[in-house]
Amino acid sequence: MTPFKSHRGIIATLDRENVDTDQIIPKQFLKSIKRTGYGESLFFDWRYLPDGKHDPQFELNAPKFKGTTILVTRNNFGCGSSREHAVWALVQYGFKTIIAPRKEAIPAFADIFRNNSGKNGLLTIELKPEEVDEIFQMVARQPKAEMTINLEEQRVTLHLPEEISFHFEIDKVVKEHLVKGLDEIGLSLQKEAAIGRYETQSNAQAFWK
């Protein structure tokens, strides 16, 4: 996995809550046995008209968002199906980071989606609702607004004529994996002896193993 330390890019906004993985990548694109080629199909049903042209009504098709690498959206992004194809599509479209707000007790991202993102170098950042609102307002006022994400310092900075920064929290294990670009399977395989010991012990206890 490519290490993620910091990134500067153009912000795009998608003002919808509960964006499910069926919308991020519809089912017909899950038939591929490859890991590549999903970027063109991202948000397929929203992005394209029946004749295959871009739907001008869809937010991400706006010219001001061309070349975007940072998606700012609403609560519960990535809910629904466990399909990792959703993350592959976002990454292959060019996104490096997704930002969404916590909503009272509800985390910004669905669990499986957030897990899948971390394994593919896609950084998910949870901010406070008022901070996300502020980003939405700034981007509406200033087309091609840019942002720098500094993962090591856990800070996002909006580059307007002035600079506005927000701190974010992140699980330290996820952060370490992203910053160092670690291979999780390789790390777990270093614990093979412990896995073997567990198997020997539990085999003695359970009949069905």
């Binding site: 993350v87 897990n115 999780e184």
Partner: peptide, 9 residues
Amino acid sequence: GIGTSEVEH
């Protein structure tokens, strides 16, 4: 449920 990277894991 898990994603494909976790299936591999």
